[in-house]
Design a protein around this nucleic acid. Structure first.
Lengths: 156, 156
DNA sequence: TAAAATAGGACCAATATAGTTCTATTTAAA
DNA sequence: TTTAAATAGAACTATATTGGTCCTATTTTA
């Protein structure tokens, strides 16, 4: 349905909050109280983010999670990669080859792949730091640049 | 999962084929033979596309479907709108307001909405005519322009 | 040694999607 | 005028995905 999963949505929420306190080690219990999500879910999200090295974790008593790198170096695309089960791609055949009956001369596939590339680039352009506050001028400018020449298709 | 539904995928396939014969009236039976999809599914897709005025239909014997307008004037975004149940939006709260517990001071939401706008613009830039053949130079150029300055976030 | 934390994996319930089927309506042709 | 060929719409079922929970193992501090 062209939606990011709820886990991914939660992930941006959690990471965005953590970005505000880069030096603090957050336990799941702590995040549970601040954000209005339940512990097992937050835990699940953080584990996945840890496996993809977007957060670093400290085990044992007094342990917790913190961003693995500055919020300027974590992109929305990376969060999606970490939390979505399937590989990035708007259609199945554009993400994973060989899944379509037609294949072979299916010219559409290559074009879906190009569309994927562009969409992904957009998602790679926005970082966690951008999500915290109203988008800063630089990001806004970049998005506007992407958006403005709304050339509708190639005329004939 | 950030995927377009299969119906949407089928839709692009069906429309792309129809774009090759703008004057021909296609029956479901005919399309069934050409594309390797079953009749009820094709029918379902075409009905939805008809409701959104991307195809026009002629009822009764000898009836069928044809593109409602030139393939240069049907965008991928429009196809998605027609075949996806839910309104366009990468996250629920960015597509439909008032669904999130947090709301109010949720700064993330506004940013998700901006991301949506850009992604949608990309999908609006690609039309059906583009999907038929390897992307023509003009579209290719536009995509590259969108993609190239891969500025990673606003530095600090 | 006990308590507080994360790691990993398995599991169940809820939701969403895909696909099918049925009935109604329209229109051309016999 | 009747029949057949088509689309329109809606409801239904089965399957797949996702969301959420729970259990056990491991790590580390006090």
């Amino acid at each position: 349905m062209l939606r990011v999963s709820k886990l991914t949505d939660y992930g941006t929420l959690v990471l965005t909050h953590m970005a505000g306190f880069p030096d603090h080690l957050f336990s799941v219990a702590e995040l549970t109280q601040i954000l209005h999500l339940n512990a097992p879910t937050i835990s699940k999200v953080l584990k996945a983010l840890g496996r993809h090295e977007l957060v670093s974790s400290v085990r044992g008593a007094r342990g917790g999670y913190a961003l693995a790198r500055p919020a300027t170096q974590i992109s929305v695309a990376q969060i999606i990669d970490a939390l979505e089960d399937q590989p990035f791609g708007l259609t199945e055949c554009s993400a994973t080859a060989g899944t379509c009956d037609i294949e072979g001369d299916c010219r559409i596939r290559a074009n879906w792949q190009r569309i994927n590339t562009v969409v992904r680039r957009v998602l790679d352009d926005v970082c966690l730091a951008d999500m915290v506050e109203p988008l800063p001028p630089a990001t806004e400018a970049r998005m506007v640049r992407h958006a403005t020449p709304a050339i509708k298709c190639t005329p004939q």
